[in-house]
Amino acid sequence: MTALLEISDLVKTFGTGEVATRVLRGLSLSLEEGELAALLGPSGSGKSTLLTILGTLMKPTSGHYTMLGHDLIAANDKELTAFRNRHIGFVFQFHNLLPDFTALENVVFPTAISDGRETPAARARGRDLLERMGLADRINFPTANLSGGQKQRVAVARALMNGPELVLADEPTGNLDSASAMQVMELIAQINREEGTTFLISTHDEKIASLCRRQIVVGDGVVTG
């Protein structure tokens, strides 16, 4: 296995002066291609902060971050936007989907952004992904009418749309009952097995974490296990 990404000495401080909070204090981590990793740690330990930095949505205060040979600290907003589109998928806990669009339109979004339009090929792939997520009968459903579990599965399908090397999921099952949570998690594990996509999933749920081959624990702003 080769390294997909490497971070080292990552520091993230929010605010300045008296109210400054050092959330990450020199955190180092590397992820291999095809890993299925759980990100654990107490509330406020900086899991979301780490995922946001890994997702290039936020820059660290200091530290190094390279992925697929790209220095993502030095890159500008435009380069990062294009990079995210190509190489990183996201599944968030809330606010995942565009409510005025159908399930298929949501899934196709990352490809349509880079193509400039919804191509038939992209639609076919989107449909295929939704079928794999067990949503064959919800393809043209307005997402506002989907259940929480269905929404998260649509979000997973969308995260996979551009065939990214890395999918970052921040408590993707935090809102779901345990049955739906397990269903989403099993789909993620299946995609990881079949396509070799690397997943990093933050969770408080031991059962979810146990389905991952690696557990990364953060505490006090560094990786503790």
Partner: peptide, 16 residues
């Protein structure tokens, strides 16, 4: 705002 955030995370540029 949340939707705009999602679009940006999915790789939509500021120009878009």
């Amino acid at each position: 705002r949340p939707e705009i955030g999602i679009m940006r995370a999915m790789g939509a540029s500021r120009g878009f």
